[in-house]
Amino acid sequence: MDKFFADFSEMLANPKYFNEFAFGIWETLYSTVIATAVAYLLGLVLGVLLIMGERGGIRPLPGPLMKVLNFVINIVRSVPFLILMLCVLPLSMVLLGTKIGTPASIPPLIIAAAPFIARLVETSLRELDKGVLEAAQAMGCTTWQIVSKVMVPECLPSLISSFTTAFITILGYGAMAGAIGGGGLGKIAINYGYNRYNYAVMLVAVVLIVILVQIFQSIGSRLAARLDKRLASGGRRAFKKQIQRDKQIPGAM
């Protein structure tokens, strides 16, 4: 316990730690942002394919193709992240010329997260009423128009929620990547806490990760709620007002 407090006061006194935490936050953020952006794009494409390509979907794809797609997604999802990361690091070597450091952890993060995001997107898109898709087809939409003008915009609030989940999951994975050469807050926690028994630094690193998660979760939730015109808070207030107004007009529907 004494060591903990000693470490703690040393940490506060030494600006080296401050710089290290600031750099850790930066590394964690940029790797998470890049990995999430790319993985979400991949996951979105895969999720849309899963929904539109299934039997009874808006553009059914050949059954064997769908089976392979589902199989690959399930396999990648079921491999534990650290093992997947070790398998994919050679790819980082090819792409970036190194297996160590924050950039090297990004390709494994993308590959690990994309299939997971594909399932999240699939779930989001499944919420859309079949009738709406049917109406769009009846109006003469092309497949691309249905995807871009109906599916994605109608499911936007839910897609934003799944984006938030993806972001936070990737942030967590990124921290794990600290164990095998990745950078960021995860590396700081492991380096100091696990390797040098400096639990004060580890604690602060973990708290910083928790704070980041909280911030992004609440931004995501708020954005999703604000954009949802079905029952968004703004919408709901307007909705109540509208009902009251309608009640005052005799004969209004």
Binding site: V132, A138, P153, E154, L156, D228, K229
Partner: peptide
Amino acid sequence: IAQRRSISMIFQQFNLLMQR
């Protein structure tokens, strides 16, 4: 698709786009 654009349809459940 061209033909469908001259045949409109309305439904029991309206099927409007809720986010528009």
